[in-house]
């Protein structure tokens, strides 16, 4: 009996690993997430849908961007929904252990990236001055801290939304309090997102900068 144990161990291990690989394989399956109307309002997605509609039309599969957008929503609701339902029994495990799969790394490069800018107003001054602007060596207050990946993740999401997300609002208040605590002459801090448009060398340059998600915090008396 004991001589047979290693064989049983090997089979049991192989079975357990088959289950683990099946579950993680399902989680890793390159299935698109559920796309909503709100997602399609993102200029990056809108541009992508427009280009795909042009491409499909050129191949004889005639579609307007609006039709293609509706189809994307319809299909991703069903496929993404089924994927979510299949993984539902394992969700608690993934949440508690923090393990998961899903590696859409730079799947959709941002053609409308946002540049963080922090402006400060000093006591007795009327206007704002720039304290920080991402990738601007002239204005690099707290640049190390703001480049740290965990902090970037908090402010660098949802730049396309009409209203700033709760995380962005909390970040704006936090960094403002930090600036005012570091320098007693600062009476107000303004956090803003400057949305730019990246064009390739073969495209017409688009120098427009859209100021979004402006949050001002004043020093409390």
């Amino acid at each position: 009996m004991w001589a047979a144990m290693p064989e049983i161990d090997a089979r049991l291990r192989a079975l357990v690993l088959a289950i683990v690989i099946a579950v993680h394989g399902l989680a890793a399956a390159p299935i698109p997430h559920v796309v909503t109307q709100n997602d399609l309002r993102n200029p990056v997605s809108a541009e992508e849908v427009r280009r795909w509609a042009e491409r499909l039309t050129a191949l004889g599969l005639e579609r307007t961007p609006e039709q293609l957008g509706e189809e994307v929503i319809w299909w991703t609701e069903r496929i993404g929904g089924a994927h979510r339902a299949a993984l539902a029994p394992f969700r608690s495990f993934f949440r508690i252990t923090g393990t998961n799969q899903g590696w859409a790394l730079f799947a959709n490069p941002d053609t409308h990236p946002v540049r963080l800018q922090i402006r400060i107003r000093r006591e007795g001054r009327a206007g704002y001055e720039i304290a920080f602007q991402r990738l601007d060596p002239e204005h690099d207050w707290a640049a190390d801290l703001l480049a740290y990946r965990r902090i970037r993740g908090v402010y660098d999401a949802g730049g396309f939304r009409n209203k700033p997300r709760g995380n962005y609002q909390r970040f704006a208040k936090w960094i403002s309090h930090r600036a005012m605590a570091a320098d007693p002459t600062i009476v107000a801090v303004e956090v803003r997102s400057l949305r730019t448009h990246t064009t390739t060398p073969s495209q017409e340059p688009d120098p427009r900068i859209e100021v979004r998600h402006v949050i001002e915090t004043r020093r409390e008396p």
Partner: peptide
């Protein structure tokens, strides 16, 4: 799995 699924999910036309 990480590299492969990251590759095949690069659906943006710029890729």
């Amino acid at each position: 799995v990480m590299y492969f699924t990251a590759g095949v999910q690069k659906y943006a036309q710029q890729w």
